[in-house]
């Protein structure tokens, strides 16, 4: 852990790994999209709409997974004060929000032909919507502070509070949903997953994961550069002030 905490060492590793990650992402995307759109069979119940699942389900997994990454990174940043962990949490949030948003939109596009409506207050859809709210609040909190170090700590506290609350929210939404479940809604526990469907699903999930790692590395690099920029600017202002002060003192004497 400590070996990666050093920013220069991180940059060296990130620069070495990044091209591989990007290539892997591209290959997996081509493979997953091709498999999902061309070679997998249509479902006997859901027809061609089952293809939406290949992007919908992995996006939902990523939405949850990235919140977990954010919470762990926040805890590490808060306890051991690793600046790199704080930046990881910050860099991960927009990616997680994007995947959560995509799972909602693709779920809606799947729901319309299957359930006959764009949106149902299904337990899973509702939980994902609340997860999106948590992401958005987290991103706003980062932006609310001028001082990045205070922002990092405040955001970390929020991420941890959110991660403790997430299971409670999930539990209560599930419970609420079974109470109010309209009889007409078809649940998604249709036929058992066939391997012809499972494989493209796994490939797409891996493609999303590789995409996450690639974009995460790029964003952390950007945050590190941004932080260095900030320090250099502060130094420059301090230097100019001291030069002005010296010149003034010289003129006075």
């Amino acid at each position: 852990m400590h070996r990666f905490a050093n920013p220069t060492r991180f940059l060296r590793i990130a620069n070495a790994v990044l091209p591989w990650c990007v290539s892997l992402t591209a290959v997996l995307f081509v493979l997953g999209l091709g498999w999902g759109l061309f070679f997998s069979p249509p479902d006997y119940q859901q027809g061609e709409t089952v293809r939406i699942m290949y992007v919908h389900v992995p996006a939902a997994w990523m939405g949850l997974f990235i919140y977990g990454v954010m919470a762990v990174a926040s805890a590490v940043g808060l306890i051991w004060r690793h600046p790199l962990a704080e930046l990881t949490a910050k860099a991960a949030a927009p990616i997680g929000a994007a995947f959560t948003f995509l799972s909602l939109v693709t779920g809606s596009l799947w729901g319309k032909p299957m359930w006959g409506t764009w949106w149902v207050w299904d337990a899973r859809l509702t939980s994902m919507l609340i997860l999106l709210f948590l992401y958005i609040g987290y991103i706003f909190l980062w932006d609310a502070f001028d001082d990045p170090q205070r922002a990092a700590k405040a955001a970390a506290i929020l991420a941890l509070v959110g991660s403790v609350n997430l299971p409670i929210i999930k539990f209560s939404v599930d419970w609420w949903n079974t109470l109010h479940q309209p009889a007409s809604v078809v649940t998604m526990q249709g036929p058992k997953i066939d391997s012809a469907i499972l494989w493209p699903l796994i490939v797409m999930a891996l493609a999303f994961k590789a995409f996450f790692v690639s974009v995460l590395l790029v964003r952390i690099k950007a945050e590190l550069a941004e932080r260095k920029l900030r320090i250099m600017r502060l130094n420059q202002v301090a230097r100019e002030n001291s030069r002005l002060g010296a010149a003034q003192a010289g003129a006075e004497s």
Binding site: I130, I136, F140, L141, A144, F145, L158, I168, I169, S172
Partner: peptide, 23 residues
């Protein structure tokens, strides 16, 4: 506590807290 000393803290506070009130 999180929004103390933050600009537009009130609105942000609602955004942060309301989802946690759901249960």
């Amino acid at each position: 506590g999180l929004t103390a000393g933050v600009r537009r803290g009130g609105v942000l506070l609602s955004l942060l807290v309301l989802p946690l009130y759901i249960p």
